[in-house]
Design a protein around this nucleic acid. Structure first.
Lengths: 112, 112
DNA sequence: TTATATACCTAATATTCTTATGTATTATTT
DNA sequence: AAATAATACATAAGAATATTAGGTATATAA
């Protein structure tokens, strides 16, 4: 786990990336997927994620529909056309930012 | 310039890196140096930097002394022993975080 | 002489997170 | 069978960290 302030500002980008290829996900699933993809290093908190998902829906970058699984409700989020556009912009911007920070801080990254 | 939320959480790390090798700097100089090192991409705002420098001094990771240049005062910040330790930790943590984000977002970075 | 650059600072506000709390269903362990 | 953990949603108080705007003052360039 990282000291949490590093996550700040990256949450929307993470969500957009996960949904960018068109597959829908529900909130809890996003937390688990991120946890899995990062080897438990990033654990999104629900208190951060849910309000962000609501905001992104209100902004028109995500759309939702609910599905019933037994007696439980899942609220699935999918990306909209404008969300797809935003995903490209955000990812490009973040990549550029990372490059800048790597230079500024003289970081040695893993090669992959 | 990046949408500013990306900078969040990195300011202390940037300051620690710049001062980690022992050379002292004053606030305004830090803003100019970061601007120069990032090709104008990161412009620290004084409203963020000065309170952060004060906090870091209060926390004992930075120490200060003032110098007069003509009739102007410069407040120089230097790193303390505990600051040097923190710098190592923060930079290591940030490098690890970047590696994780690169994997998670599948980013293609410049090779350097 | 007017604007820009240098150099410090604070305060109000905004954003984004953590932590805590709440509800409810389903699966697992004791 | 009962207790706990996992699943799944949500909100609210508070903390942290930034922006924006404002203030003071000296030095330099147009």
């Amino acid at each position: 786990m990282y000291s949490s302030e590093l996550i700040k500002g990256t949450l929307r980008t993470i969500v957009l990336k996960l949904l960018a290829d068109g597959n829908k996900m529900y909130g809890y699933e996003i937390t688990q997927r991120v946890k899995e993809l990062t080897g438990n290093k990033i654990q999104l908190t629900e208190g951060a994620l849910y309000p962000t998902l609501h905001a992104m829906e209100a902004e028109g970058v995500l759309s939702t529909h609910t599905e019933n699984v037994g007696n439980r409700i899942r609220k699935y989020y999918g990306i909209t056309r404008s969300g797809k556009k935003l995903a490209g912009e955000k990812l490009s911007e973040y990549r550029d930012f990372i490059n800048t920070m790597v230079t500024l801080l003289d970081l040695q990254l893993k090669i992959g």
